[in-house]
């Protein structure tokens, strides 16, 4: 199945938060930042967009948040057309952008002003502000100007600020950049809490562990195309019978060694090599290990590192994007 094709929404299908069909967008009429992207996001799910820098993730977020109009294709957000119902859509979404955005005032001031902008009544605004300052560890920083904070602190303010208002869907564009491990996990947990209360989240990230932790479904996007789109369970099931062998060699002609290894292992394994390292995906670990060692003896190429592990989302990502651009569709 082509991951860039989706079924059209059924009449009255109320749980469809985003419907995108064959979206294309160009900034310069030469290169397409989005090139035939199709997907749906359902109410209450966390939908992850994974991809390298410049893959098209932010362009897709901009289209869904009505900042740009796609050059062609069909897009519906909360059942509405961004081209005609932009304001209605925007009044029901939250957006944490990739870049910094602050009013030139204190942390507390930023939250307060944002609450006013969204029409949150004063008592509720104060209650939310205090809860969010505590939730995101910003209580001691409330009197500091937002621009004077560190990168991670600023990020926390941006995310906290967005929860000053109610929304049906939250777009998070790389929200954890600059956060330490603990704060990153706390932020993901806070988003999870909101999801449990019924919030739908569209989330872009480079970090595959985060996607694994938070997302129900992920789409891997590269050069404006969706290469993989499925639930995490399905993606893992797709690779479920297989395991990953990481290996690196220290001596000899590694390119010849990896080429020979690809031949020896045959179609039941996938070898992805770079320089002196390779990632091998196989459903018969025992046989593969034996052949790796055998070939090392016969070619004189010395093995430096050998490790067998379960597949991760990173393997899916690397296979679909990093090496050869082979598309993996959901089954």
């Amino acid at each position: 199945m082509d991951p860039n094709r989706v079924a059209p929404p059924l009449r009255g299908e109320k749980d469809l938060v985003v419907y995108a069909e064959n979206l294309r967008h160009t900034y310069d009429r030469q290169r397409f930042a989005l090139d035939g992207v199709s997907f749906t996001v359902r109410r209450g799910e966390v939908f992850g967009l994974l991809g390298r820098n410049g893959a098209g993730k932010s362009t897709l977020i901009k289209a869904m948040t009505t900042l740009i109009q796609p050059t062609s294709g069909t897009l519906r957000v909360l059942g509405m057309d961004p081209a005609h119902d932009g304001q209605k859509i925007r009044s029901r979404i939250g957006v944490v952008q990739q870049s910094e955005s602050f009013d030139f005032t204190t942390v507390q001031g930023n939250l307060d002003v944002y609450g006013v902008l969204w029409g949150v009544p004063k008592a509720e605004r104060t209650r939310r502000r205090e809860r969010l300052l505590a939730r995101y560890g910003l209580g001691d920083l409330r009197k500091r100007r937002a621009f004077d904070l560190s990168g991670g602190q600023k990020r926390r303010v941006q995310v906290a600020r967005e929860f000053m208002h109610d929304m049906d869907v939250l777009f998070l564009d790389e929200p954890t950049v600059g956060l330490d491990v603990i704060m990153r996990r706390e932020m993901l947990d806070s988003v999870r809490d909101e999801v449990r209360r019924g919030l739908t989240v569209v989330f872009t990230t480079h970090n595959l562990e985060e996607a694994d932790y938070l997302c129900d479904r992920v789409a891997v996007i590269d050069e404006g195309k969706i290469l993989v789109l499925d639930t995490l369970e399905n993606l893992k099931r797709l690779y479920g019978g297989k395991k990953t062998i990481d290996l690196s060699v220290s001596d000899g002609d590694s390119a010849r060694y990896f080429a020979a290894l690809t031949d020896v292992l045959g179609p039941r394994a996938t070898v992805t090599a770079k320089d002196r390292s390779a990632v091998i995906l196989t459903d018969d670990t025992k046989e593969a290990l034996s052949k790796i060692v055998e070939l090392s003896h016969s070619t004189g190429v010395q093995l430096d590192w050998l490790n067998v592990r379960k597949n991760t989302l990173e393997d899916v990502f690397l296979r679909s994007v990093g090496h050869g651009g082979e598309s993996i569709a959901s089954t």
Partner: peptide, 12 residues
């Protein structure tokens, strides 16, 4: 300071 695009994805 990034608030233009932030406001324009708001309810305005």
């Amino acid at each position: 300071w990034g608030m233009l695009s932030q406001l324009l994805v708001g309810p305005f």
